[in-house]
Amino acid sequence: MRLKLDFVPLEDFPYNDVNKHTIQGFIYSTLMRTEFGDMHDVPRFKFFTFSDIFPPTNFKKGEAKSLIISSPNEKFIEALYSRLKDRERIYLGKHEFYLKSVKKFSLKVKRRFITGSPIVLYKDNKKNEYFKFYVHHNINFFLQRLEENAVKKYHAYYGEEPLIEGNLFDKMIPRIRNGKVDIYVRIVKMGVPFTIVGSSWKLLEKHCITKEERKFYQFIMDCGLGEKNSLGFGFLNPLK
């Protein structure tokens, strides 16, 4: 299930003034005094993600921007919706916005997907080393780790093993920027900047999704692919 927010800035400021940690903080603060109020402090999968703010241009007074939050947990989306539906103003960090609209909706799973935020995977999480195509050159490792992570989250959420036949995806086309697949995303937390490395994809395709596999692909579409989903990474949209 998904929640789309359309909001209008009340002043001009750079796009990067609102980073992913800012949005995560907005979501957690919105959930205070709900059944999800302690989610941030619980050491487990959060089962939600969100898109990059779009369009990805500088904020201009009066020009609307949008954000989509997704989760397989309908109660989570309902809790956010109930807290936001009657609001006129929201804050993302120090910036105030007019909340133009809040809309709940669901999307059916398709065979083809596009990323709405970079997919992040660790090469070695003990060393805090991210997988980088430019350095590691191993699409098989990327696919294997991506599937392992998705299966682990699915099992944690449903308490069962998913059925997956063949590869997680049969066709993958990256979005290349400046000749590279890797994307470096700057995050600021408590005033301290750090960088997360991911990759963006204009096509992730499974040639045939069986009836038995549909639940799994619906899950990863709603929950996100890869790691750091609750920080707004791995957001997927279906393609016709």
Score class of each variant (00 low, 15 high):
residue 1 M to Q: 03
residue 4 K to P: 00
residue 4 K to V: 02
residue 7 F to L: 12
residue 10 L to W: 05
residue 12 D to M: 10
residue 16 N to C: 06
residue 19 N to A: 04
residue 21 H to D: 15
residue 24 Q to M: 11
residue 26 F to Q: 09
residue 26 F to K: 15
residue 27 I to T: 08
residue 31 L to S: 06
residue 32 M to P: 00
residue 35 E to T: 09
residue 36 F to T: 02
residue 37 G to S: 15
residue 40 H to K: 15
residue 40 H to W: 07
residue 40 H to E: 13
residue 41 D to C: 08
residue 42 V to I: 15
residue 45 F to M: 02
residue 50 F to S: 09
residue 50 F to K: 04
residue 54 F to G: 03
residue 59 F to L: 10
residue 62 G to W: 13
residue 65 K to D: 02
residue 66 S to I: 05
residue 68 I to K: 09
residue 69 I to W: 01
residue 75 K to V: 05
residue 76 F to A: 01
residue 76 F to Q: 01
residue 78 E to Q: 07
residue 79 A to P: 00
residue 79 A to H: 01
residue 83 R to I: 01
residue 88 E to M: 09
residue 89 R to S: 12
residue 90 I to Y: 08
residue 92 L to M: 06
residue 96 E to N: 10
residue 96 E to T: 10
residue 99 L to R: 13
residue 99 L to V: 11
residue 100 K to G: 06
residue 102 V to E: 13
residue 102 V to Y: 07
residue 105 F to H: 04
residue 105 F to T: 03
residue 105 F to P: 00
residue 108 K to S: 15
residue 109 V to Y: 03
residue 113 F to C: 02
residue 115 T to F: 00
residue 117 S to A: 08
residue 122 Y to E: 01
residue 123 K to G: 00
residue 128 N to T: 08
residue 129 E to T: 13
residue 129 E to D: 07
residue 136 H to I: 02
residue 137 H to Q: 14
residue 140 N to H: 06
residue 148 E to L: 09
residue 151 V to D: 06
residue 152 K to W: 04
residue 152 K to V: 01
residue 153 K to I: 00
residue 156 A to T: 09
residue 158 Y to L: 12
residue 159 G to K: 13
residue 160 E to N: 11
residue 161 E to I: 10
residue 162 P to F: 09
residue 171 K to N: 14
residue 172 M to D: 00
residue 180 K to S: 11
residue 180 K to H: 12
residue 181 V to E: 10
residue 182 D to W: 05
residue 184 Y to T: 04
residue 184 Y to L: 12
residue 188 V to L: 06
residue 191 G to D: 07
residue 198 G to P: 01
residue 199 S to D: 00
residue 202 K to W: 03
residue 204 L to N: 04
residue 205 E to T: 05
residue 208 C to P: 00
residue 209 I to F: 12
residue 211 K to C: 02
residue 213 E to Y: 10
residue 214 R to W: 01
residue 216 F to C: 08
residue 219 F to V: 08
residue 223 C to L: 01
residue 224 G to W: 04
residue 229 N to L: 04
residue 230 S to M: 05
residue 235 F to G: 05
residue 235 F to N: 07
residue 237 N to C: 08
residue 239 L to N: 09
